[in-house]
Structures are given as structure tokens and as C-alpha cells.
Design a protein around this nucleic acid. Sequence first.
RNA 1: GCGGACGUGGCGAAACUGGUAGACGCAAGGGACUUAAAAUCCCUCGGCCGCAAGGCUGUACGGGUUCGAGUCCCGUCGUCCGCACCA
Length: 876
Amino acid sequence: MTIERYNPKQAEIRWQRKWEEARIFETLDDSSAPKYYVLEMFPYPSGRIHMGHVRNYAMGDVVARYKRARGFNVLHPMGWDAFGMPAENAAMQNKVHPRDWTYANIDAMRKQLKSMGLSLDWSREFATCDVDYYKQQQALFLDFLAAGLIYRRNSKVNWDPVDLTVLANEQVIDGRGWRSGALVEQRELTQWFFRISDFAEDLLVSLDDLDHWPEKVRLMQKNWIGKSEGLSMRWEIANPAAADGATDIEVYTTRPDTLFGASFLAIAADHPLARTLAKKDPAVAEFCDQCRRAGTSLAALDTAEKIGLKTTINVVHPLDREWTVPVFIANFVLMDYGTGAIFGCPSGDQRDLDFARKYNLPVTPVVMPADADAASFVITDTAYVGDGIMINSRNLDGLSPETAFDTVADLLESQTLGDAPQARRKIHYRLRDWGLSRQRYWGAPIPVIHCDDCGVVPVPVKDLPVRLPDDVTLDKPGNPLDHHPTWRHVNCPACEKPARRETDTMDTFVDSSWYFARFTAPRHETPTDPAVASAWLPVDQYIGGIEHAILHLLYSRFFTRAMQQTGHIDLKEPFRGLFTQGMVVHETYRTEKGSKGEWIAPAEVMIEDTDGLRQARHATTGEPLVIGSIEKMSKSKKNVVDPDDIIDSYGADTARFFMLSDSPPDRDVIWTEAGVEGAHRFVQRIWRLLGDAAGQLSGTEGGTGEGGRALALSRSAHKTVKAVGEDIEKLAFNKAVARLYELVNTLAAPLADVTAGKADADLKAACKQAADMLVLLIAPMMPHLAEESWKLLGNDGMVATTPWPAYDPGLITDEQITLPVQINGKKRGDLTIDRNADQAAIETAVLGLDFVQTATGGNPPRKLIIVPQRIVNVVI
RNA sequence: GCGGACGUGGCGAAACUGGUAGACGCAAGGGACUUAAAAUCCCUCGGCCGCAAGGCUGUACGGGUUCGAGUCCCGUCGUCCGCACCA
């Protein structure tokens, strides 16, 4: 009579096979059903999946299975972000080819993902290192180049002189290469750039329309784009001889209103004028070198002292020809922001104030708080940066800074210096063009050829792909493509003379900037099938980590616009809905406190818990261990749990379910053994309750209970259907999980009666209906258990192709409701009353309650507040 | 420095637009079943007082608005995140 324990191992593989054979997750383009595109950020094939992947893909799969059950034509693809440095590093360490290493990893991870039972359309799978994929990417490059969306220019890069490669800013640690440890040099290299900054304004204003994105991500992108409105103004050089004939210095400011507070100009060490001066004066040259060296270390910026060197140059104040201001070279002025030159107004900027005090420059307050006194207002050691009114500013006095801004801007725009207006209003963005050149092997080759006669010549489309050569040596420093004996030698497509291939490859962020579009037609002979792509896109729900909030998402938004401009796609925003999930974290264990202790993996730890006191011990040696802080799972701290182990011992359903319960999905979730066991107990509980009753239920027709317990059960079940659907729509998986626990709790007793043969026909029908509903509701989270239970209950077909259950709205609202009754705002009791009772009826009933009578002493209350369907408050 | 988010039992968390604070889970304690264990089932579980009925108190801290505040406003403290010599 009692059913055996559920065996996920056998059941899960069996159902995975059945789904695959029936090809139910392979998506067709021609469907009359509305489309729904759900996508999780595709993984880098590092070798094994981790719990973060399990969480990410479990969430996406809930959405995909739920939407499918709701009748949508769901696209849910998977692929691999497969180019990048780790493959080259592995190749150097293990003497394997990056390609072999990568594809072996993909095979291993695909197998792991399949064991999770995800409803993915594997027929659309690709890796970005597939020749066909990067061929299409090269085609996009050529189109972007032709459309002027890509250009080439010299740019300063971080150069590792040992590894002979360019380093990203994140790879420079304390001024040294992260791998070689060599002092990083600043070098000028000719590099390719995407004109993303041309789209700055559109990328900024369109954020407002992305109302299914987290506010946090939109704000991060907004700050990253960094729009500022200001004035670009030229200051006439009073002594051109000192400046080698230069006549003016152009300065960018967002505070032209403070112009009368100016007491110095400062230029960057890399400013052309500074370079000119450095040539003549060794002291200037030495100072500039010092600034550049300090500039490479990001950490040093925090503490770096503001230092400057006074030059011999003076400039004329734009609004007073009698007034000259000294020019400094300063370490805090950046060449690549604005014009590389600023004017300093010490009273209104703390940094300028510190600088002025250090070099004894005048400090004139020009803005004061509206309630201050102009005669006595002084700046001591804190600059005044707030709003207020203008003072000490001649004709601007008394104006607001905002009005003063316009007054100064209008004046200087109409005033001329030389042959041109002295100033013009300028909108400035922090967003830089995106440099895509990488001096590496394992990336998509940039499809251009350098010819001595013709210059840079794009590879003709018919010659694509430009394939990566297989026979490369990776044990020498530098770019393997560069020292390949033959690969780079080709004839110029234009003049047929010998020429050289570009040996730089593309940044891997390029690969991930359009993969979501390729999934819509993954085998098409051009990058996209525009009609198909436009029909599927945008991605309705994109799910991934917050670490991609800026770069990946911004680049993808740019790429979509660029693809629209070049006719590959007909929209500009790729992701309608975005969700950023939290990390999976775990306790840490070490042999002793402090840095001396050795990290111990959770698998080797035993936890004892007596009266709330937790003690960790080594599972084999029994040695007591220190329980450390809860941190992101990482190899270095050994606090990792391998998904394979969990799926092996508990099954995929348990792993998925646990990842979805407990914590809200955007917050970190703590992985605990007890939590997994709890999830697994729930799996077994469902199986046991349904299994024991299955003999009675499998022949029973499900139906809504007509009265008593049967009706109460049906009410609970229908309410759960409604709630779970709403929770999944909001991606509130943890709340949906709680509703499922509740339903099982209420279902337990009636099911036990059914099992014992003590249920009447009404209750049996209600139980069957509720049980069927439960199975359909758990299916997005625990699909294998759902299929197995569905069959057990005697139902036909697969849950994976069964529609989402409908609830009866009539069962959602109860006829009797219980209103809490407060006296002076404190709950003192309840009132159970007909839900349609009018105000007068409620009032009479409330005043008749014993505890209300006691409180009022029979007198009418001062006030009686009745909030329909909610609460009653008696004020006395 | 600038910008943002958050702060609720022993723990993870619920609480829709201000309306019963702590749903649901974990841990813990007690009990039943069992030769025993596991599994399962039942009960208790914010704090204080009380045999109990019940009362008081409680959402970081201090004020305020309101019939009513975890939720709104002002201030303080703390934690986390993003950007950062940005002119």
C-alpha cells in the first residue's frame, strides 16, 4: 500500500529522453501562438557548471515552461561564449590546443546542463568560436565599417612588455601586469573602435523606456554614459612667446557661472602645451613624467596628493582684459576628459580649493547660500558647492547660478577671440568609443588587409570567413597570429600585390553583443534573417548576473542599433525585460582562525547542532573547525558545492527547487545542506502523498468540491493556482514555492482520508482535481517529478505539453470574511461577516461585539472607521 | 568624494496601492510510532508578565504625519553595491 521512495535518478533520465524524442522544446518559427523569447546569459565554457549556473538556468526554465503552458510559442536557446583568454592560458599550461580544450569543455558542460532537465531548444546551439558564427560576425564588421560605425585611430593602451600584449584596465594591478608582474607601459597603438559614443544620447534617453529593467541597472548605465552640459571656452594666452606661439587654451566647464571666481588654469601632463613646454624645460619634462607614472596605478589615485607645476604662461580672463590668471600643469587633470584643461574656482570646488591653498592662490566666494550675508561670507577650508545666489561677480551679482550660467554662456558665445566665438555650449559624455582590438589568438580575426599601396582594405565578403589557423605556437609571448609563418601573408584584394592580414582579433564582448539575434536563425547564411529576427526580438525576459549591468548590456544595446542601421534587424532595444539574479553563497570553514587556517571544503565538514550551538568538525579526522563568513562560492576558499554531486544524490528537481526557494531571486541565496535536504523532503512528501492515494484517485474524475471539506479544499487549490501564476509572472519564485508548501499542507489530511478509503465521492473528486493542479503547478520547477506524478495519477500525455490549469474566479473570494477589529488602532478581536455586508450592517455588528461593548461602555464611539474588505477601527 | 539600495524572530524570509507583523521554509525543543534507528506524524517556537484567560511590548535608533506606520516624511547610526582626480 505504501509507495516506494521516489527515485529521481531513474525517473529524470527517462523523462529527459522522452522530451528529447518528442522534440517538444524545439521551437518552430511558424506558429499562430504569440511569441515569447526567454534567454539566460550564455555560459563561458570553463569546464564545469557551478551553482550560479544552476540558479540562473533554473529560473529561466521556470519562465520558459510556464509560458509554454500558458500557450506561448517559446524560444529558449542555449550556446557558448567560447572565445577568450582562459583557453589560451590552458593551452600554455597543459599543451592542448585552445580549440580542443574549449570544445571538450562544451561537451562536458552540455552533458551537465542536460542532466538538469532544462526545456532548451538544443537544435539552435552554437559556440561563438564556431567558424560559422565568427564568419557572420566578420560580415557584420564589414557592414559596420562600410556604414562608418567602425574606425581606426591611435590610442594609448596598457602594454605588458613581458607578455607583449595589451592589457585591459582590470588586468593592471598596482601598475603591473596581472600575469607577468612587469611594470606596465603606456603605448600608442593603432586600434579599431566602435563609434558607440555617437549613440550616447539615444542610449541614455532610451533607458527611460526600459521599464522592465531593474532601476539599479538603468541608473548604472546612466552614470556610465555620464552626460554633462557645459561650456567649451578659449582663454587667450597673454604671453604667446612663452607658449611657443600658441594663442589660446580651450577649457571645458560645467560651471561658467563661477567664472569670476577663477584663480588658475590647469592642464594635463599630456596636454599638447605641456608637451611643448617639456621639450624646452627639463624640470617640466620631469614633472610630467612623474604624473604619468602615478597615473597607471588606480589604487594610488585615492591618496595621491594634488600637485601642480606653475608654468610661465598667463592667460587673459574672458570677461576682463586687465585680469590675468596663471597656468599650471596638474596631476589631477585628465587628458581624455573634456579638453584636458580646466579653470579652477577654489570657492566652489573642494579639489580646486585644496590646490589653491597649497599654492597660495586667491579664493573668492562667488556663490553663497541664499540666507547668508554677502559682506561677511568667506570660504575657509570647505568649498561651498550648493545652490544660492551670485556674489563678487560684477553684473552677475544677485542672480541664481542657473541664470548666471546662461548669461555667461550667451555672452561668450557672442564674443569673439581671433576669428571664432570665444565659447560654445557643449554636451559632454563620459562614454568612450569601444576599442575592440585584442592582440590575441583565441578570438574572431578582424577581417581587413593592410596594403602598402591601398592602405586598409576590407576582406571581400565572398572571401569570408577569415579562419584562425590551427597550427599556432602559444608558448612564445605575444600574439601567435603575428609570428605564424604564413597566415598573415595574403595578396591585396584591391591591387593583388603582396599585403598583410590584420593580426588583431576582436574583443570577446563583440561575440556576446549579438548572439541573442543569431539564435533566431542560427544556421542562416547571413548574420540574421531580418524578418525572423525582428519577429522574435526583443528578448522578452533576459536573466543573468549583475556583473554585466554595464558593459555587456550597453554593448548589446549599441550593437542592436548598429545592426538596425545596417539592415540586419528592425529594432533598437534587444532586451525588453531584464532580471539580475543574486549569487549563490556558502559558509566557509578553516582549520584555525585567521590567515594561518587552511580552507576546508563543505563536503569534508560535519556540522553538529545542539540547542542552537553549531560546531563544525572535519568529517574524517574529527578535528574541530572554525566556521567563517558566508561568501560567494570560490575555488580559493573551497566553499564550493558541485552541482553534479547534488544532482547525483538528490536529483535535479531538488537542486532546482532549492535554488528557487528561500531567498528572493535578486538577492544572494545561502547554500546549506539542511536547505537541500528540506527541498528533498518536500519532493518525497509530494510523491508519498500522491502515490499512496493514487490507487484511489487514478480512476477518479477530478471536480470542484460541492460542500464542506471538499469545497474548502477546492477553494485552496484554486487560490493557489492564481497565486502561483501571479508569482511566476513577477519572477517571485520564493513566494510561489511558499504557496506550493501551503497547498501540500492543506492537501495532506484529505489525501490521507482518500488513501484510507474514508473519503466520499465529493472529496475524492476535489482531491483528484487539487492533486492534478498541484502537479501542474510544480512542473516548471520540478518537471521530472511532475511528469512521474502525472502518470501516477492516471493522466494522459505529458505535463510538458499540458496547459496551465485555470482557476474558477468564483472560488477565489469567500462568502464570509473575517475583519480584524481594532480599538484605538490596536487589534482586539475579529468580526466574521458576509462579504457583501453594507457599512450599516458592519457597524451594527461591530458595536454589538462583547469586547467593543466593554471598551465603549455602551456609549457611541467617537469615530468608526470601516475599510471595506480590510479592517474596522473603533476610536473612543 | 558622488550616486544608489537596504536594515523585520536563532536563521532564510512574507506582509498587494498605509489596514491582523512574522505566511512558508530551516534550525531547535517536546511528544507519538518503533526492540532500536532512520523515515513519518502531532505539538511548541519574537520578548516580558501570568497556572490560565489574557495583558504589555516589539520591524536599526530618535522624532513627525495619521483613526491606524515595517510601509510615508525629517534626522541619526550601520551594512552592501556602483562610479570615482569627470572639470
